[in-house]
Computed example of a mutant assay.
Amino acid sequence: MAPQNTPEKDFPWWLVILAVTGLYLFWQVASDEVYRASLKALSKGIWITVGVSVVAYVGACLMGLGLAMMGLSRHMVLRQAARLYIEVMRGVPILVLLLYVAFALVPAVIAAVNWVFGEDAWRTRDVPLLWRAVLALMLAYSAFLAEIFRAGLQAVDKGQVEAAMSLGLNGWQRFRLVRFPQAFRLILPPLGNDFVAMVKDSSLVAVLGISDVAQLAKVTATGNFRYFETYNVAALIYLTMTIGLSLVLRRFEARMRSRGRD
């Protein structure tokens, strides 16, 4: 019987097509003044996009892991609190959450703090919109990451945990040395996918006027009326970041799998 092709053995024609398209756009940038001007204007927002994505994702991972531990707790109150938070955050669109955090939640928290301390020592304008956007993305993604962490921790064989208990390891040692390392190998692909999604969703901060790639593309295209060229450059920047990240994560996952087999 002839061996059947599997997705892992397919030649990456999709990557060839994207590479050819990318080379064409890079050639346009190198040879066309409008493309070069657009790239120069939009490149100023790359660090904002990367910074927002990394900081928000790290915070979301920490919050998500904490929520996952709460969801697996023996205490019903902690489990219910985690479930309530996760369901609410997963049910609110990220764009709505961005606007709510920036213009409703942060001012309300500042007003409450000033009311408690009886003075106006903290003003709403003291919290930059950039950090409000980071907070909103962190809150949104922590709910999705919590479910990933929970599924990974629950997938670890209970026999492994029981063996660790028989060796005298306490709860923190069992988590750090047994449960989390094994769970991490299982959840690495969805964690990587969510990071790529975070990079794309960071473009939503443009609604707050933050000068990321998406906002600068909007401003530049409005100024020069060259929408086709400007948004081509914006798409090229985002594709370069997301596809590059995807390829790096796939390579890292393959190494993790090979180490697991060894």
Rank of each mutant, 00 (worst) to 15 (best):
T21H: 09
Y57C: 05
S38Q: 07
W27Q: 11
V52D: 01
A56Y: 01
A30Q: 15
T49H: 01
V34T: 15
F26R: 01
T21C: 11
Y57H: 09
F26Q: 04
L62H: 08
A30G: 14
G45V: 06
V29P: 02
W13G: 08
L15F: 15
V29A: 15
A37Y: 07
K44G: 09
V34M: 05
I46M: 13
T21W: 09
S53H: 04
Y24H: 06
L18Q: 13
A37V: 14
F26H: 06
R36W: 04
S43A: 15
A41Y: 07
G22M: 07
W14P: 02
I48F: 02
L23I: 15
L39W: 04
W14F: 11
T49Q: 01
W47L: 14
V16T: 10
V50Q: 03
V55I: 10
T49M: 00
I46Q: 01
D32W: 06
Q28T: 11
Y57I: 06
Y35G: 04
L18D: 04
P12C: 12
V29H: 03
P12E: 11
A60L: 06
W47T: 09
V34G: 06
V54S: 00
W27C: 09
C61S: 12
T21E: 09
I17S: 10
D32R: 14
S43E: 03
L15V: 15
V20Q: 07
V58Q: 07
Q28L: 13
V34Q: 07
C61R: 00
Y57W: 05
A37N: 15
Y35P: 01
V34P: 02
G45P: 03
Y35N: 06
S43W: 08
Q28S: 13
T49E: 03
G22K: 05
Y57R: 07
Y35I: 06
I17P: 05
W13I: 13
E33S: 15
G45A: 10
G64E: 02
E33G: 11
W47S: 13
